[in-house]
């Protein structure tokens, strides 16, 4: 087994984790406030915005990959950044895939219970900021679920990152694109090994997140 886990494979695992954690974190920072905002506001065209978000939740990764590719290609509007076939490009594509999913989950959860939470906050004399903090805390389970869903999506993604990352050896090759490549080459054992590692990482992160969540609940006693 250890023969299979060489320096190159370790590099691939580390890059996969970097990309997945970074894109999930950025998508949470964008998606959670967006979902809460969407529930809070009422304006003409809100239903269209919700419809667009729901469509984006199911958007095919290759289409997102293509859009990011067109934006970052040398002659594209952001070509001067030189981000095509880099980790940045892969993170951008992942963020575009994940943010609507996280926003959608938070929006749906918020629709269900935010009015009760906001009313309660008013009756307790909470400020606007305290109300937002309370909302995020009370929707903690749903936000946690959104984060795990987003993480799972990022971890398993192939199409978009293949287009914008290029699956370049030692540079943008991640676990899913490597598995795809190994299968094409007929190196099934190595592909299965990487697949198993991918599943183990997903399991480990779920366990760590679960422990942190429990600990956060226990240690929040700073009154």
């Amino acid at each position: 087994m250890f023969e299979l886990l060489d320096r190159e494979t370790l590099g691939i695992i580390i890059l996969t984790l970097q990309m997945t954690l970074l894109s999930t974190a950025i998508s949470l920072v964008l998606g959670v406030p967006l979902g809460l905002w969407l529930d809070r506001v009422n304006f003409k065209g809100k239903s269209i915005l919700v419809l667009i978000n729901r469509t984006l939740m199911a958007s095919p990764p290759v289409v997102i990959g293509l859009v990011v590719y067109l934006l970052l290609m040398r002659n594209g509007p952001f070509g001067s950044l030189g981000w095509l076939f880099t980790l940045q490009a892969m993170v951008i594509a992942q963020v575009l895939l994940l943010t609507p999913i996280i926003c959608g989950i938070v929006y749906t959860a918020s629709q269900r219970s935010s009015s009760h939470i906001r009313s309660f906050a008013v009756t307790m004399g909470a400020t606007k900021w305290q109300t937002q903090v309370l909302l995020i805390k009370e929707l903690g389970n749903e936000i946690y679920f959104a984060a795990i869903t987003g993480f799972g999506r990022a971890m398993s993604e192939v199409g978009a990152i293949m287009i914008v990352g290029g699956n370049i050896r030692y540079h943008t090759r991640v676990m899913t694109t490597t598995i795809s490549l190994l299968r094409n080459r007929g190196e099934i054992n190595q592909a299965i090994f990487l697949g198993a590692i991918l599943m183990l990482i997903a399991l480990a992160i779920q366990i760590i997140a679960g422990i942190l969540r429990k600990r956060e609940r226990r240690t929040d006693e700073n009154y």
Binding site: F120, G125, R217
Partner: peptide
């Protein structure tokens, strides 16, 4: 901050009894 209301179906925080009780003080 001087006014409060107890609703018919009260909203309780997803937390312990004690932390629910002290929440307005914490605020």
């Amino acid at each position: 901050r001087d006014i409060t209301m107890v609703l018919r179906k009260p909203y309780l925080l997803h937390d312990t009894v004690e932390r629910n009780l002290i929440y307005p003080l914490k605020l």
